[in-house]
Simulated scan of single mutants.
Amino acid sequence: MTQWKWESTGDEVVEAFKEIVKGKTIVITGPSQGGIGSETAAALAKTSPSLLILAGRTESNIAPVMARIAESSPDVKVKFIISPSAAAEINGMVTTIDLLINNAAIMACQYSKTEDGIETQFGTNHIGHFLLTKLLMDKILAAGAGSRIVNVSSSAIRGNIRYDDYNFQDGVAYDPWLGYGQAKISNLVFSRALARKLKSKRIFSFSLHPGSSTPGAANL
């Protein structure tokens, strides 16, 4: 039986595994102030990773998180990377990545498409992380056994993956919650596929439900 309870905090969990986190290189996407990613970053920083890379689209949303970490964990090196160029910058900065947390997400928003023509929730919550993980995979593999990929999913999902029509008939058949569900189910499928493919290398992949009291706004 797990030792953790509903009331357990991120700080308590990280403290229990601090020797695993110490000295590691960690990448977190979408750690905006007040979101899941910011709390994750602040908790992990307390156990002395060697480098904490925070990737987001708007630096002003991440700056308060970096200031908080600088105050609570002044010895931890923290770097902000803007999302569109994240993979190239990260690959040029590090030789290994021990932990990648794909957290950035939007929830149940109105229909729109990314610049690549993909329904925005599917593009943001899944395709973007799929591509980032692929582009960073050499660094994850270089970290070797024990490195991890975490995809933040949700239990608040319904519907399925519309493999032949992920754009909902170009918005005609769109439902915000079905769009969210498609993206979050994709996180689950992606995590399971990675776990199978990386098992022989002892590199782990997980998806998770982040809790019931989480922000509904964009964690970008």
Rank of each mutant, 00 (worst) to 15 (best):
I127W: 08
N151R: 06
P74F: 12
S147K: 11
S83E: 15
I90M: 12
V76S: 00
F122G: 02
V76T: 13
G159Y: 13
M93T: 14
F122Q: 05
K113P: 00
V152P: 02
V172L: 11
I157H: 01
A104E: 04
G123V: 12
K113E: 15
K134Y: 07
I101E: 02
K134I: 04
I157A: 06
A173R: 10
I140P: 10
L178T: 10
F168H: 08
I140F: 11
F80D: 09
G159D: 08
S73E: 03
A156I: 00
F168Y: 14
A108R: 10
R158C: 11
I140K: 04
T96I: 13
P84L: 06
G171F: 03
K79C: 00
A86K: 01
V150G: 08
P74G: 11
A105D: 13
G146D: 05
Y163T: 09
E119N: 04
G123Y: 09
L136I: 06
A86Q: 02
I81M: 15
N160S: 14
M107C: 10
E119Y: 01
I149N: 07
E119H: 04
L178Y: 13
D165R: 04
T95S: 15
I101P: 12
I82M: 12
N151T: 14
T114D: 07
D75P: 00
F80E: 08
L99R: 05
T114H: 06
S83D: 13
P84Y: 11
V172A: 13
L135S: 10
A87T: 08
F122L: 14
M107A: 06
L135I: 00
M107R: 01
